[in-house]
Simulated scan of single mutants.
Amino acid sequence: MDQQSLFVCLFFLVIRRGKVTVWLTELAAPPHIEIRSSVLRWDSPRDTNVTFSVQYSTVPVGLWHSMTGCSLLHCDFPGEQFYGKVFRVRAERGTLSSVWQQSEQVHCAHIDTCAPLITLTITTDKVGLSMKHRDSSLKKEYGGHITFKPLYWKTTNPNDIQEPDDITNPLIIWGLESGKNYCFQVEYLTYNKPYGHPSLICEEIPEKSADRTFRIIISGVVTVLVLAILGCSFYFVYNYYRKIKQHLHRYLEAPLDIPDHFHKFLSSEFSEDQVDHPSSQDEEVCDFISLEQAQLEPEVVGKG
């Protein structure tokens, strides 16, 4: 056998032994990975005494990030934080590990925190509210049983919530007060029950040109009136300040008369001697009367 044939044989032997080694040291991958109600779940493989590593990446798949805090066979995650991500799980034991088992991309149908996407088109006399799904998973799962529920209210009166009678997409809302802030909310309804989280946007309705002009005119008129009143007041004080000074001088020099009984009451000092106490004679009379009553009661009883 020449050297070339010997080298080829040795090469295939190394490759074959490498495959045997990998097959002997590789763990079984966790089967059946699924995402349901904001929970990533997987089944346990045939191997025992194993742990699992979980990673996620954005779509298209790029850099993988490790997740912590997962339990043995499931991993909870915030739906909005991991929306649109792809997960992978592998089994580990010591220095051994299995191949990665990859999940599907997270859709709205997989999570309970899904919220509609809304955009506003605001003009001076109307608001256009557009509503759409983050993806088509909810529409595929619920069909016509998944709907949008729009609401709006003025920020100064949050208890007065308005719901349109005729819901279209985009929804045109008329009759909003210009120059005021409004909040617009859209949530999912599945079988007429709320689903996921609502989306909320608060914006100010711009003023109409006529309203802005009227407000500027009123502000100008009020400012002119206030300045005119102040100017007239200063002019009057400047021209008649001597008469005003004499009048105030006479008023301030007038004595402050207080009635005599008030003056006496405020300046007098009270003492215990001024308080009337019952005399000793009155006390004796009271004692005598009580004694007479005590003596007469037995006689009345005896006669009975």
Results as ranks from 00 to 15, higher is better:
residue 278 P to E: 13
residue 11 F to G: 07
residue 158 P to A: 07
residue 83 Y to I: 01
residue 214 F to I: 05
residue 203 E to K: 14
residue 129 L to V: 04
residue 37 S to G: 03
residue 204 E to V: 11
residue 74 H to Q: 14
residue 183 C to T: 15
residue 156 T to L: 11
residue 109 A to N: 10
residue 259 P to E: 14
residue 123 T to V: 00
residue 81 Q to K: 01
residue 134 R to K: 04
residue 250 R to W: 10
residue 209 S to I: 14
residue 79 G to Q: 07
residue 251 Y to E: 14
residue 249 H to C: 12
residue 261 H to R: 13
residue 183 C to G: 11
residue 97 S to L: 03
residue 36 R to Q: 12
residue 170 P to I: 06
residue 57 S to F: 02
residue 302 G to W: 05
residue 213 T to R: 13
residue 93 R to Y: 01
residue 166 D to H: 15
residue 135 D to M: 05
residue 169 N to F: 06
residue 258 I to T: 07
residue 2 D to T: 14
residue 142 Y to E: 03
residue 297 E to F: 07
residue 125 D to W: 12
residue 81 Q to G: 01
residue 70 C to V: 00
residue 112 D to E: 03
residue 185 Q to I: 03
residue 240 Y to N: 15
residue 241 Y to H: 15
residue 221 V to T: 10
residue 122 I to P: 02
residue 111 I to Q: 07
residue 107 H to M: 07
residue 195 Y to I: 01
residue 23 W to T: 10
residue 117 L to V: 04
residue 222 V to R: 12
residue 194 P to K: 04
residue 183 C to R: 11
residue 15 I to M: 14
residue 191 Y to M: 00
residue 5 S to P: 02
residue 48 T to M: 11
residue 79 G to V: 11
residue 50 V to S: 15
residue 273 D to M: 09
residue 222 V to D: 08
residue 198 P to W: 02
residue 23 W to R: 15
residue 124 T to L: 02
residue 4 Q to A: 15
residue 158 P to Y: 02
residue 242 R to H: 14
residue 150 P to A: 07
residue 93 R to L: 01
residue 240 Y to S: 06
residue 90 R to P: 00
residue 70 C to D: 04
residue 46 R to F: 08
residue 101 Q to M: 09
residue 32 H to R: 10
residue 160 D to E: 08
residue 54 V to N: 10
residue 218 I to K: 12
residue 64 W to T: 04
residue 78 P to K: 05
residue 105 Q to D: 01
residue 105 Q to S: 06
residue 135 D to H: 08
residue 66 S to P: 08
residue 30 P to R: 04
residue 149 K to A: 12
residue 299 E to M: 12
residue 253 E to P: 03
residue 26 E to H: 11
residue 93 R to G: 02
residue 8 V to M: 09
residue 231 G to Q: 09
residue 245 K to N: 06
residue 287 D to E: 15
residue 239 N to G: 10
residue 140 K to R: 14
residue 267 S to W: 00
residue 95 T to Q: 06
residue 51 T to R: 08
residue 287 D to W: 14
residue 178 S to M: 12
residue 137 S to Q: 01
residue 174 W to Y: 14
residue 43 D to C: 04
residue 226 V to C: 09
residue 106 V to W: 02
residue 96 L to S: 14
residue 263 H to W: 08
residue 121 T to F: 05
residue 231 G to D: 00
residue 120 L to R: 01
residue 17 R to K: 08
residue 123 T to S: 11
residue 257 D to Q: 09
residue 198 P to E: 07
residue 90 R to A: 00
residue 299 E to A: 14
residue 143 G to N: 07
residue 72 L to S: 15
residue 284 E to C: 13
residue 151 L to K: 15
residue 151 L to I: 03
residue 175 G to H: 12
residue 259 P to T: 15
residue 256 L to R: 05
residue 45 P to E: 10
residue 24 L to W: 11
residue 128 G to I: 03
residue 122 I to C: 01
residue 70 C to L: 01
residue 243 K to C: 14
residue 18 G to Q: 02
residue 89 V to L: 00
residue 22 V to T: 13
residue 243 K to V: 09
residue 196 G to R: 01
residue 190 T to D: 11
residue 292 E to N: 09
residue 291 L to S: 13
residue 83 Y to C: 03
residue 9 C to K: 05
residue 19 K to C: 13
residue 102 Q to W: 00
